[in-house]
Amino acid sequence: MRIAVDAMGGDLAPQAPVEGVLAAAKEWPDTQFKLVGKPDVLNPLLGSKPSNVTVVEAEETIEADDEPVRAVRRKTNASMVVAGRLVKEGEADAMISAGNTGALMTVGLLVLGRLKGIERPGLAPILPTVDKLGVLALDLGANMDAKPEHLLQYALMGSLYRQKVHGMAKPRVGLLNVGTEEAKGNELTKAAFDLLKEAPIHFIGNVEARDVLERNCDVLVCDGFAGNILLKGMEGAADTLFGVLKKELTSSWQSKLAAAILRPNFRRVRHMMDPKEHNGAPLLGVNGLVVKSHGSSDAVATKHAIRQARVAIGNGLIAALADEFGGK
């Protein structure tokens, strides 16, 4: 396997991507890693570079506040763009970036191109659930506006992803809505409901956001606007809850004693709900494997994104999607 990593994208770049790749290179020596970025910045961070890590030069960087299309067109030597070209030209099996989401979407569309039959690619991260199996949700931010046909394509791609990558024989597909009744929702969800119930998937109907953590479905379908609000709300709630618990459990000696006894339990809960453990959202629908890492990804999160990419490559995800939607 060959994985290109945008070493200059993300809040903690280049330190976090480099450290994440070094950890991954040690754990998976069968994988070749291509760190894309400025050699004079990256080489000092690599130290005694492992044999399965190389640096690919890219002297430009797409910043968080850059206008996506303009940046991708003008900064042709940006690390994100170069990583995309490596996949396009067959020199890498996947690319990972924690950089500008809009720019990554643009790289997917302009550099790699859409799969035949796909109108709008979608970001599909795994949302944590109490049973640790997670919910694949899409779209969670690639497209703010969607048509019913786009939600149908998300459902088909998400269902196939769960089958191919996670081994689910008959993944349950739910439509994010304000109620479970068929007549609920806006014009988009009502029209999408009619399409999904006729699709060759295991559609279980509308689902509400409050039930997602209980894994009331295996694939959650929504437009990027509602999906991104759901994602950020869940992340914010988890951060706030753990922050409050930490404050309360260190407020007195009695609390500290109780916290010491319960520390293993709290660690298991944090591990289960930590976004880092589920980092890495594939951009489904483009002609190559593109994985979006969270903008604030540290080395641990980067390594988990690499793990996601390895599993997708090993299960032939892109080829399966291409076959499903009529070939490349």
Rank of each mutant, 00 (worst) to 15 (best):
K164F: 13
G102M: 03
A25T: 00
A155I: 08
R162C: 14
I126F: 12
D298T: 01
R172Q: 08
P171F: 05
G122K: 02
N216E: 05
A71C: 06
K34D: 02
G102I: 02
N186P: 05
P282C: 01
F242E: 10
N315R: 15
I204R: 04
L284E: 04
A83K: 04
V300S: 02
M95A: 02
L140I: 13
D66C: 03
K184R: 15
D66F: 03
D298C: 01
G316V: 14
H278L: 09
M168L: 11
L188C: 09
E248A: 14
L317C: 12
V300M: 05
E324G: 10
D93T: 03
N43K: 09
D11W: 07
L156A: 11
V173I: 10
A281Y: 03
K170Q: 11
G314I: 08
L188W: 07
L196E: 13
A16L: 12
E59H: 15
S79N: 05
P171R: 04
A25I: 01
K132T: 14
E182C: 12
K170I: 01
K49Y: 01
V286P: 00
L46P: 04
D323V: 05
I313T: 07
K246C: 06
G99P: 06
A23D: 06
A155M: 10
V173D: 08
M234T: 01
H150S: 03
R310P: 06
V300N: 03
L46T: 06
A237Y: 10
P50Q: 00
S293T: 01
R267A: 10
L195A: 12
V130S: 13
N287L: 00
G285V: 01
S297L: 01
E57D: 15
N265F: 09
P148L: 12
T250W: 07
L133I: 03
P68H: 01
V269Y: 06
S255P: 08
T189M: 06
D274C: 11
Q163N: 14
R73K: 13
A260H: 15
I118Y: 11
A103I: 02
N77V: 04
P14N: 14
L152V: 09
E324S: 11
E198D: 15
L289C: 01
V107L: 03
G108C: 02
T101W: 05
G141V: 00
N315C: 15
G280K: 02
M234I: 09
S297Q: 00
M8L: 12
G179L: 11
N77A: 12
G179V: 07
L35E: 08
A209R: 05
L156W: 06
G167H: 14
M168F: 05
D30M: 04
K88G: 05
G90Q: 13
T76S: 13
L35A: 06
F325H: 13
V286M: 00
R210Y: 02
D218C: 02
F225D: 07
A25W: 00
A183P: 11
E59K: 15
R268Y: 05
G243Q: 11
V173Y: 08
F242T: 15
A259N: 13
K88I: 00
K184F: 14
P17C: 09
